[in-house]
């Protein structure tokens, strides 16, 4: 939800006449606690991390400057590339699929169920889809690792019960399947967020547009495609950006479900940097991994913000 607030209110209007500069600037005192706290908790640690990325450091003693050595090593590290490749899968599971499914669900709930069955039904269904979003990811991980367990897990038991024993799998333990299982869990976790944002966005679509399209004989799908989608384009960019960033940061689910395994099959950059920091204690190398992740996230966020602003201007 970072990029979701309009900036106009804060930055657009010029300072109003009749406010001497002296009076305005004494407001700066109110920023003091915030600025100090941000320095201590965000700026200093971030600069330290960036610096450590250019050094060789085991967490004790003083770091020794090695320039770009860590980054050169990353380029040749197949684990590093694998972790970012897995990130792309996470983007599919946490951004692409939830956005697409969320759009259809939101539109169906809003102008189909809402119109024909009332807002109570809508509220209950929306609550069901949103529930996983309030669940701590560690708890979601426990629930799913038990459901997906190879022996006596619910999914395998269900497959057996309906006569599909041959479909049983070691869902999280088979290197060929584990990544897809984690993706499935992430879709379940993520779907509520786009749904709720899109439903809020649909409320500002002018119903007359829909009525006009309906009179012209456009079916539900055509109205969805030509009326609904263009109208909530700003929300789509917001959700895509936000979910993509969340997908790149995914950590808890991997920690609890697979610990990056089996054999690195589900390793992701944040888990990779975590183990490099705290298990291998190659702090310099871990810092380099997290710096690359940061650069990618900031770049994607800026692009998302640009697209959103442009869409808002047009809407």
């Amino acid at each position: 939800m970072t990029m979701t607030v309009e900036k106009r209110g804060v930055t657009g209007t010029a300072a109003q006449a009749g406010h001497p500069r002296r009076r305005r600037d004494s407001y700066a005192l109110f920023l003091l606690p915030g600025v100090l706290a941000f320095l201590a908790v965000i700026i200093v640690p971030f600069l330290m991390n960036t610096y450590v990325g250019f050094t060789d450091w085991q967490g004790v003693g003083s770091p020794s400057w090695t320039g770009l050595a860590n980054y050169r090593e990353l380029m040749d590290d197949s684990d590093f590339w694998a972790s970012f490749r897995h990130s792309l899968f996470m983007v599919v599971a946490m951004a692409a699929v939830p956005t697409a499914v969320g759009l259809v669900l939101a539109a169906a709930l809003f102008d189909y169920i809402g119109k024909h069955f009332g807002s109570k039904v809508v509220a209950v269904l929306r609550a069901c889809f949103y529930l996983p979003q309030v669940l701590p990811i560690a708890v979601a991980g426990i629930v799913w690792s038990w459901i997906l367990a190879p022996d006596n897990g619910s999914l395998n038991a269900l497959l057996k019960a309906i006569g599909l024993s041959s479909w049983q799998q070691d869902w999280l333990g088979d290197p060929d399947i584990a990544l897809y299982s984690v993706m499935g869990v992430m879709v379940w976790v993520q779907i509520g967020f786009p749904l709720v944002v899109f439903m809020a966005g649909l409320q500002r679509v002018d119903p007359q547009l829909h009525e006009a399209a309906e009179l012209d004989g456009a079916g539900w799908w055509r109205r969805f495609w030509h009326v609904t989608l263009p109208q909530i384009r700003p929300e789509i960019y917001v959700v895509l950006t936000w979910c993509t960033v969340a997908a790149l940061k995914v950590f808890g689910a991997v920690y609890v479900l697979t610990k990056g395994g089996p054999g690195g099959a589900t390793n992701v950059p944040s888990y990779f940097s975590f183990t490099t920091f705290f298990e291998k204690t190659q702090v310099g190398y871990g810092a380099a991994i997290s710096t690359v992740l940061t650069v990618i996230i900031l770049a994607l966020s800026l692009i998302g913000l640009k697209l959103q602003t442009r869409a808002e201007e047009r809407a």
């Binding site: 941000f38 640690p45 330290m48 991390n49 960033v245 944040s270 940097s273 975590f274 997290s290």
Partner: peptide, 22 residues
């Protein structure tokens, strides 16, 4: 404001070790 937005976007992975150390 841009500074606060950036702070909000930073992944915790880029802060976690220094915070632990400090």
């Amino acid at each position: 404001l841009a500074f606060f937005v950036l702070a909000n976007l930073l992944p915790q992975e880029a802060l976690v070790y220094p915070i632990y150390y400090l």
